[in-house]
Structures are given as C-alpha cells and as structure tokens.
Simulated scan of single mutants.
Amino acid sequence: MSIAVLYTLFAAISTAINLGAQMASMWIYGGPRAVEVSILVGTAAGLPLRYVLEKRFIFDFSSRSLVHDGQLFTLYSFMGVFTTLIFWSVEYAFHLAFGSASMRYAGAVVGLGIGFYVKYQLDKRYVFVSAPAARFP
C-alpha cells in the first residue's frame, strides 16, 4: 500500500477519533466554552495513536530508546502546534460563519485535511530523520 493511501487512512481514523471525542465532549459538557473545550479534547484524543501509526508505517522509523521516543513524541507534538492552529482556525471560522454543529464539523474536516498535509511535510523534514543536525535544537 502506498504511503499516500496509508497516510490518508490514518488521517481518516484520526479525524474520526477527533470528531467522536468532540461530540462526546459536547454531550458531557455543554457549559461555557464547550465548543473550545471539545476542540481541545478532540485534538488530544487522536495524537498518540497518530504518532505511533505514522512513526511505524509512514516513516518506518525506530527510536533508539524510550527516552529518544519521548523526545520524538515531544517534537512531533510541537510540530503539531502549528498545524493544530490551522485546524482550529478553520473549524472555528466555520463555527462563526455558519453557527451550526454540522458546519463546524465540516470545517474541522477541511482544517484537519490542510493540517495533515502541512504536518506530514514538517515531520518528514524535522521529526523522523536520522541526522540529529536536521532537527531543531
């Protein structure tokens, strides 16, 4: 199976986990800032699984130790900050523009798609590389 197909499959799985966690969050908590809380919960729900799947099946990368794996996960998560801002911005813009849950979730799918593409590029260049000099200090 090609990397593009696998990455798309993993992105779809991650998106489903993200949106499912958002929906569950909204069901559990409907108070002030419920939308913002649900977006944060959804983001946190899919991250560890995506890291493991991408590290193994997309980048075929093996960490040297548990400490190294922790460092990689930290860097992977840090790269995700930028792409998460893209995702959140698009989702929240849809929420503000259309005012409905279905359109907010549509915005989430669009934002996640853009974010996944950018994230792949960042991870390929800075996270899952063999040469330490290619990483951020």
Rank of each mutant, 00 (worst) to 15 (best):
A4L: 12
L6Q: 15
Y7K: 03
T8F: 08
T8A: 14
T8R: 05
T8P: 02
A11S: 15
A12P: 02
S14Y: 10
A16R: 02
A16V: 05
I17F: 03
I17H: 01
N18K: 06
L19K: 00
G20K: 11
G20L: 08
A21D: 00
A21R: 01
M23T: 12
M23K: 14
A24P: 03
S25Q: 11
S25M: 11
S25T: 13
S25V: 09
W27D: 13
W27T: 15
W27Y: 14
Y29C: 09
Y29I: 10
Y29Q: 13
G30A: 08
G30R: 09
G30D: 11
G31S: 05
P32F: 13
R33C: 14
R33Q: 14
A34V: 09
V35T: 09
E36N: 09
V37G: 07
I39R: 01
V41R: 02
G42D: 01
T43M: 07
A44S: 08
A45C: 02
G46Y: 04
G46F: 04
P48Q: 09
L49R: 13
L49C: 09
R50F: 09
Y51L: 01
Y51F: 15
Y51S: 00
Y51C: 00
V52S: 12
L53A: 06
E54I: 07
K55G: 03
K55V: 04
F57N: 09
F57I: 13
F57A: 10
F61L: 05
S62C: 13
S63A: 15
R64T: 14
S65Q: 07
S65K: 03
D69Y: 02
D69C: 07
D69H: 06
Q71G: 13
F73K: 05
F73D: 03
T74L: 15
T74R: 14
L75F: 10
L75G: 06
Y76H: 11
S77V: 08
F78G: 12
F78Q: 13
F78V: 15
M79T: 11
G80T: 05
G80D: 04
V81Q: 12
V81W: 15
F82T: 12
F82P: 07
F82V: 14
F82C: 13
T84R: 06
T84Q: 11
L85N: 07
W88M: 04
S89C: 08
V90D: 00
V90F: 00
E91V: 12
E91Q: 15
Y92N: 06
A93N: 08
A97P: 08
G99E: 00
G99D: 01
S100Y: 08
S100G: 07
S100M: 03
A101N: 12
S102F: 14
M103L: 14
R104F: 10
G107H: 01
A108P: 00
A108I: 05
A108S: 08
A108T: 10
V110H: 03
V110F: 04
G111V: 02
G111T: 02
L112T: 09
L112V: 11
L112C: 04
L112I: 11
G113R: 03
G113C: 06
I114E: 00
G115I: 00
V118T: 08
L122I: 08
L122F: 14
L122H: 04
D123T: 05
D123N: 10
D123P: 01
Y126T: 06
Y126E: 03
V127S: 04
F128H: 01
F128D: 00
V129E: 01
P132T: 10
A133C: 07
A134W: 14
A134F: 12
